[in-house]
């Protein structure tokens, strides 16, 4: 464990920079090597879907709950899916208890956009009665242990939890109020979006920054990639500036890495059996 402090050690920064310039990483990985991902799902009985994701030592837990509510007026026949994130103070000495700050909100929105813009969920199936009753899904990502790259870990956790979701079916009763029809069924998910983050120090770009790298990097960029090999959302963090070539090259790399990761994770194995 490196020392964790808001004030970055100059020594560590120089060391990491020196290594990166030689194409090496502080934890022995290659520049475009992803850490190991471990996923456990369905361990929270009271959540509709849940996932516990380890990305190296980074750990994110995600639970899906639902509610019945009214749809947005511009999409009366579509359900709603909201991603939220909590930077739990248990995860790092740097996190403090309190309302989610802008970093937490940004992370939630990046994951949210990744899911929304891939059209991964069939939102129309989440409609019970047009304009009146739809399912509202709450995807809550809880940071349990912070060792870098929470964005990617949260994106995997969110999609794994959604895949793991078993939603109770609804029917309208005589009074026109939704009622449980006695069944459970998984969500219809067409696409599995993944987020791939790159860090940038100086002019060196590398994938999946770990904690000590994340502390010293100038900036990073997160791509959401869908199964059709398309980039569906990009978020740039930090102070680094990126040239157009860098962005395009990195996008290409992101697509490659996402494909590989998707094949390796085989997230669809977490889909529950319909009851």
């Amino acid at each position: 464990m490196m020392d964790i402090n808001e004030v970055v050690s100059n020594l560590e920064k120089n060391y990491i920079l020196k290594l990166l310039k030689q194409g090496k990483r502080i934890d022995g990985r290659g520049l475009f090597e992803y850490r190991d991902v471990k996923i456990k799902t369905g361990f929270i009985p009271k959540a509709e879907g849940s996932a516990d994701v380890f990305l190296g030592d980074t750990r994110v837990m995600c639970g899906v709950k639902y509610d019945i509510g009214t749809p947005f007026s511009d999409n009366p026949d579509k359900g709603v899916c909201t991603v939220m994130s909590e930077y739990l103070p248990i995860a790092s000495p740097m996190f403090e208890p309190g309302r989610p700050d802008e970093v937490a909100i940004q992370l939630a929105r990046v994951v949210d956009r990744g899911i929304r813009h891939t059209n991964c969920i069939d939102y129309k199936k989440l409609c019970i009665k047009e304009g009146e009753y739809v399912y509202i899904l709450f995807v809550d990502c809880y940071m349990m242990d912070y060792f870098g790259n929470l964005t990617d870990a949260s994106a995997i956790a969110a999609i794994a939890a959604l895949l793991n979701t078993n939603l109770p079916g609804a029917k309208l009763n005589e009074e026109g109020v939704p009622e449980w029809d006695g069944t459970y069924s998984p969500l219809t998910i067409y696409e599995i979006p993944l987020s791939i983050s790159f860090g940038k120090v100086g002019n060196v770009i590398f994938v999946d920054p770990n904690l000590s790298e994340e502390m010293v990097l100038d900036g990073s960029i997160a791509f959401a990639v869908d199964e059709k090999k398309q980039v569906t959302s990009i978020q740039k963090y930090g102070n680094a500036t990126w040239s157009v070539e860098e962005i395009l090259d990195t996008s290409k790399k992101a697509i490659e890495i996402a494909d590989e990761l998707r094949a390796k994770l085989n997230l669809r194995q977490h889909v529950p059996q319909p009851k």
């Binding site: 464990m1 020594l11 560590e12 060391y15």
Partner: peptide, 10 residues
């Protein structure tokens, strides 16, 4: 002052 190498914590 330390000017080279790395400091790790245990």
């Amino acid at each position: 002052l330390i000017t080279e190498g790395l400091v790790i914590a245990i």
